[in-house]
Every structure is written in C-alpha cells, then in structure tokens.
C-alpha cells in the first residue's frame, strides 16, 4: 500500500462517516442533535422514530450500499474493457433496466409498481446477457464488447424514447421518478431486500482484486500468466452486472457514479485494484449519500432526485481532477 493510499483510505472513511452523520441530521424537518442521538440509541427524551429510524437511517444506508456497489461495478467494467469511458451503462444495465420498467408499467399498469425492482433487475441482466452473448459469438475482444454494448444500449434507449413518446403522460408518474434515480420513500423493506446480495457481492469483488490486476494486462498477457480469461471475464462481468442491476433496481438510474467514482479513485490512489476497489467504493458511497442528503435540504419540502445531484456534484470534481492530475498517476 502506497503512502497516498494510507492517507486516502482513512480520510475517505472519515469523510463518509461525517457525510452519513450529516445525512441523518438534515432533512425537510429540523431535528436537534440531542433528539437524533436519543432516537438512534433509544435513550430517554423526545423521539422522532419515523423520521430518523424509519426514513433517514435506511435511506442513508441504502445510499452507502448502492453507491459503493455502482462504483465497484464501474471499476470491474473499466478493468475488463480496458477503456476509460467504460461504465455499467456500457454493458447496457441502465438502459436495459429502464426499458424493462417502462415496458412493465405500460403493458401492465396495475402490476408493475410493486414488481418494479424485480423487473429492473431482469431488464438489466437481460441486456448485459445479450451483450455478452453477442460479443462471444466471435473471439472476444474488449473493443467488440464495448461496441456491441453501445449498440444494445442504443436499441434499449430507442425503446425507452418510443414508449415515452407514444405513452407519454402530461403529469409525470411514478416510473419517471425512478428513472431520474431517487431514494424517495425508500425504507427498511428495500434495504432488507438488497443488502445481503449487495454486501456479499461487494465483499467478493474486493477479494478478487488480484484477478482484476491480471485482467488489466490484456488478454494475451493474462493468458500467458495462466489465467482462464474467458471464464474469469464472464464471472467478473456477471458480478458487475448484478452489483449495478440490483442497485439500479432499488434506487433507480443514478447516473455517473459508476463512471466517475473509479476515475476519481484512480487519480487518488493509482490503478492497483487492492486499493482502487475500496477507494472507489468509498467515493461512490460518499457521492450518493451527499446527493441524497442535499436533495432533501436544498429546497424543502421539495425533494431533488439524487440522480440529478450526483452528476451535479461529481462532474465538476471529476473534470478538476482530470485536468490537474499528472500523467504518471493515471495508471
């Protein structure tokens, strides 16, 4: 672990903790710190059980979990495809999930809402599966996978546009809230549905750092080092797909986290996956927690979708870090 990583990782943990505490303490309703502490630890005093325990706490935990998962997914995809522009979106997850949700709601309006997460998960994995299947027809190359991914993504996007135009509604309805990526009305039931999968997959992903280091060398070198590239690529892509699809299914299409967090992390600690993965995960979590909390306090009682704010926060920092970084820190 480099000196930079020794400083960066603990700082990020501290920042995330602070952001988490901030997220618990802000919202449309102002609650004094003493009441928050009393409620959290079930001490004596005024209780704000719903707002703290049932709303802010599960929302913030969900933000940490999904933000981290989307960032990890981004790191895997970028490592496998060896392309700086790659993100979970490239393997069609966002578009596939979005199309599935809109199809579901327009074909079966009564059924869709409760089943939205499952439909999204199905759409995301189906799109990723299609991309992987199509690009495996010929000897696999990262370039082909990216191009097939873009093509499948475009078809899904066209489908989304088609449904939006033909069945568009003047008043924006529930699926559209989901499409902008929002943690509104998310609670323990959502958290309990995804946390076992997300934490297991995230842990698995963190353990696989050395395989990613090998994959980053490229197909021929990795093969020469005895890696079963085909199998490992499939397994790693499957993990990335599940991480992103499960996240998207519960918090909606929160843009840019999967693209930005890995890049920001790489500029901070370099490209070795042993430190890159946890750093990216912390940054992804930080981005989503901040975006969700800010969305709640910016213009209360109105809520700004986290998906809008992650882009707004992340993009300037992202550009700044790219412009100020030196070339040698890029790898």
């Amino acid at each position: 672990m480099t000196r930079r990583a020794r400083i960066t990782l603990p700082s990020l943990v501290l920042l995330l903790t602070l952001a988490f505490v901030w997220s618990l303490s802000v919202g449309a309703v102002k609650i004094p710190a003493s009441v928050i502490i009393n409620t959290l630890f079930d001490l004596d005093g005024d209780q704000q059980r719903f707002i703290i325990n049932r709303s802010r706490l599960p929302r913030s935990l969900l933000a940490v979990l999904t933000g981290g998962a989307m960032a990890l997914s981004g790191v895997i995809v970028q490592a496998l495809l060896r392309n700086a522009l790659a993100s979970p979106k490239i393997i069609g997850i966002n578009s596939g999930a979005a199309l599935a949700v809109l199809l579901g709601t327009s074909l079966a309006p009564d059924l869709a809402l409760a089943w939205l997460p499952l439909v999204a998960l199905l759409g995301g994995t189906l799109a990723a599966g299609t991309i992987y299947g199509l690009s495996a027809l010929r000897p696999m190359s990262p370039e082909r996978l990216i191009l097939v991914g873009i093509a499948v993504g475009l078809v899904c996007d066209a489908g989304v546009d088609f449904i939006m135009v033909t069945a568009s509604t003047f008043e924006i309805s529930a699926p559209l809230v989901w499409l902008t990526g929002s943690l509104w009305a998310r609670g323990w039931q959502h958290l309990s549905a995804v946390w076992p999968f997300l934490s297991l997959l995230s842990a698995l992903c963190l353990c696989l750092f050395f395989r990613l280091d090998l994959m980053r060398l490229g197909t021929s070198q990795a093969t020469a080092l005895g890696v079963n590239v085909r199998l490992e690529r499939f397994v790693l892509l499957a993990i990335a797909t599940l991480l992103a699809s499960i996240s998207v299914s519960v918090v909606g299409v929160i843009g840019f986290v999967g693209l930005m967090a890995p890049h920001i992390a790489r500029q901070l600690v370099g490209g070795r996956h042993g430190v890159l993965l946890p750093t990216a995960m912390l940054i992804g979590a930080l981005l989503v927690v901040l975006a969700d909390a800010t969305g709640r306090v910016l213009v209360p009682p109105l809520e700004i979708s986290a998906g809008i704010l992650t882009a707004l926060f992340g993009a300037p920092f992202f550009v700044f870090i790219l412009l100020t970084s030196r070339m040698e820190t890029r790898e």
Binding site: A28, F50, I51, L302, E303
Partner: peptide
Amino acid sequence: VGTRKTPSLEIIAS
C-alpha cells in the same frame, strides 16, 4: 408537504 409526485415523508411524519 411538497410535490404531489414526491411529497416529503419527513414533513408528513412531523
């Protein structure tokens, strides 16, 4: 309590 689309659950609870 905010918008009809995403009313603030915190305000409603309060």
